[in-house]
Lab assay of single mutants.
Amino acid sequence: RLIESLSQMLSMGFSDEGGWLTRLLQTKNYDIGAALDTIQ
């Protein structure tokens, strides 16, 4: 599930440099909407 969510976020133009996006998705239970809300 992480790989699916991460690949979708990467395709939106986000980077996972340093693993920050992986950690964010894990804390949000791989919910892309919740991750995007946090980023904004």
Rank of each mutant, 00 (worst) to 15 (best):
S11R: 11
M9N: 00
M9V: 02
L6G: 00
G13C: 08
Q40E: 12
S15T: 15
L6I: 10
K28S: 11
S7E: 11
I3W: 14
Q26W: 03
E4I: 07
L10P: 00
L6D: 00
D31F: 04
Y30V: 06
S15L: 06
I32Y: 05
L21K: 00
L10A: 08
L36H: 02
M12I: 08
M12V: 03
T38A: 14
Q8R: 10
Q26N: 09
D37Y: 13
L10H: 06
L6K: 00
D37H: 09
G19I: 00
L36T: 03
L36F: 09
Y30K: 04
G19Q: 06
Q8E: 13
L6M: 09
L24A: 03
E17M: 09
Q26H: 01
S15M: 10
Q40F: 15
Y30S: 05
Q40Y: 15
S5P: 04
L24P: 01
L10W: 06
Q8H: 11
L36K: 04
I3P: 07
G18F: 11
T22I: 10
R23P: 04
W20V: 06
G18H: 10
E17L: 11
D37T: 12
L6Q: 00
R1K: 13
I3Y: 14
L36R: 03
E17A: 10
S15E: 07
L2A: 05
M12P: 00
S15Q: 10
W20M: 01
R23H: 13
Q8N: 08
L21Y: 01
A34E: 10
K28P: 06
Y30F: 09
A34G: 09
G33F: 15
Q26V: 14
W20F: 07
L25W: 04
Q8D: 03
S7N: 15
G33L: 10
A34V: 08
I39M: 06
E4Q: 11
G33Q: 15
L21W: 03
A35N: 05
E4T: 08
S15C: 10
Y30L: 07
G33E: 14
D37Q: 15
T22P: 01
I39R: 00
T22D: 02
T38Y: 15
S11L: 07
L21I: 05
L6A: 01
M12F: 09
G13I: 07
R1L: 14
Q40T: 10
Q40H: 13
D31Q: 06
S7P: 02
M12H: 04
S7R: 11
Q26G: 08
W20A: 05
S5K: 11
Q8V: 15
K28T: 12
I39D: 01
L2Y: 12
Q26M: 14
F14P: 02
R23M: 13
A34R: 09
S11W: 10
I39E: 03
A35F: 08
E17I: 12
L21S: 00
G13W: 09
L36E: 01
E17S: 08
D37I: 15
W20S: 03
I32F: 08
A35K: 03
G19V: 00
S15W: 10
T27H: 14
G33A: 11
G19C: 12
L21Q: 00
I39K: 00
L24H: 01
K28W: 11
G33M: 14
L36Y: 06
A34C: 09
D16M: 03
Q8Y: 14
Q40S: 13
M12S: 05
S5R: 08
Q40R: 11
L36Q: 01
T27W: 11
F14Q: 02
E17Q: 11
L21E: 02
A35W: 09
T22E: 05
I39N: 00
K28Q: 12
L21H: 01
G13L: 06
L25M: 01
S7W: 10
N29E: 10
R23C: 14
S7V: 07
I3V: 14
A34I: 09
L24I: 07
G19R: 04
Y30I: 02
E17H: 09
G33W: 13
A34F: 06
R23W: 06
I3T: 10
R1N: 08
D16L: 03
D37V: 12
G33K: 14
L6F: 06
S5V: 15
T38L: 10
L21D: 02
T38S: 15
M9D: 00
K28L: 15
W20Y: 10
Q40I: 14
G13N: 05
W20R: 04
I3F: 13
L6N: 00
N29T: 03
S5N: 06
Q40P: 02
S5A: 14
L6H: 00
D31H: 07
E17T: 09
G33I: 14
L2V: 07
T38D: 11
D31W: 09
K28A: 15
R1Y: 09
G18D: 13
L24F: 06
R23E: 14
D16T: 04
Q8K: 06
R1M: 14
L25V: 02
K28N: 13
E4M: 12
L21T: 01
D31P: 03
S11G: 05
I32A: 06
S7Y: 13
D37G: 12
D37P: 02
N29S: 10
G33V: 15
Q26S: 12
R23K: 12
L36N: 03
L10D: 02
G19L: 04
G13P: 01
F14A: 01
A34K: 11
T22H: 02
T22Q: 08
A35Q: 03
A35M: 05
